[in-house]
């Protein structure tokens, strides 16, 4: 399924759907998220309009000359669990990362309509080829953890948490578990 961000009809997606994503995403990891929350607490604007936006949890390697970006696979999303609900409440529409989200994040995503996509870490070289533009938009001092605006094309991912409460990280393993 080829999808354009922001998603037209997120409720049509189901956990386990294999998709390719196109459009704009913003990169942010632990350190950038901590600053987002500081900004929210201080009543300041975030570096981008979070309503309808997609965050990709990634800290890329430096780009070789002539390349848009270096290797850019997903990092563990759960390290941002403490921060994500505040962004989801403000309209964040989707997140791309790897690994489970906690109950608080999942319930906030269900309540506010945010989808979580899983990408495959360890395919960072392939995923870098799906990124056609990259620019730093905030926190340049954080280096790899700076916030970047990326344009992605045919970026492969799976729906992990849909808007119906399903979780691929529960349902997938349950199908293949052998009881000892």
């Amino acid at each position: 399924m080829n999808l354009t961000l922001p998603l037209d009809d997120p409720s049509s997606l189901h956990a386990g759907d294999s998709v390719t994503l196109n459009g704009t995403v913003y990169t942010a990891r632990d350190a950038a998220h901590a600053r987002f929350l500081e900004a929210i607490d201080a009543g300041e604007d975030l570096p981008f309009d979070v309503a309808g936006a997609t965050i990709y949890f990634v800290g890329p390697t430096p780009a070789r000359p002539g390349h848009v970006i270096g290797s850019a696979g997903p990092t563990t999303a759960s390290r941002c669990d403490a921060y994500s609900p505040a962004l989801v409440e403000r309209g964040l529409a989707a997140m791309i990362g790897k690994g489970r989200r906690n109950a608080e994040v999942k319930s906030s995503m269900l309540e506010h309509g945010c989808v979580y996509f899983g990408a495959i870490e360890g395919t960072a070289a392939l995923l870098s080829q799906c990124i056609t533009a990259a620019e730093i938009v905030a926190y340049e001092d954080l280096g790899a953890e700076a916030v970047r605006k990326l344009t992605i094309e045919n970026f492969p991912a799976l729906v992990v948490n849909d808007l119906h409460g399903a979780d691929l990280y529960d349902d997938g393993p349950a199908r293949y578990r052998r009881s000892g």
Partner: peptide, 20 residues
């Protein structure tokens, strides 16, 4: 995809994972 990624990273001389 992991196997394809390994081929691409070696050919392009880039890291196969961003967490180096």
């Amino acid at each position: 995809r992991l196997l394809e990624n390994a081929r691409v990273s070696a050919a392009e001389r880039i890291a196969f994972c961003q967490d180096t």
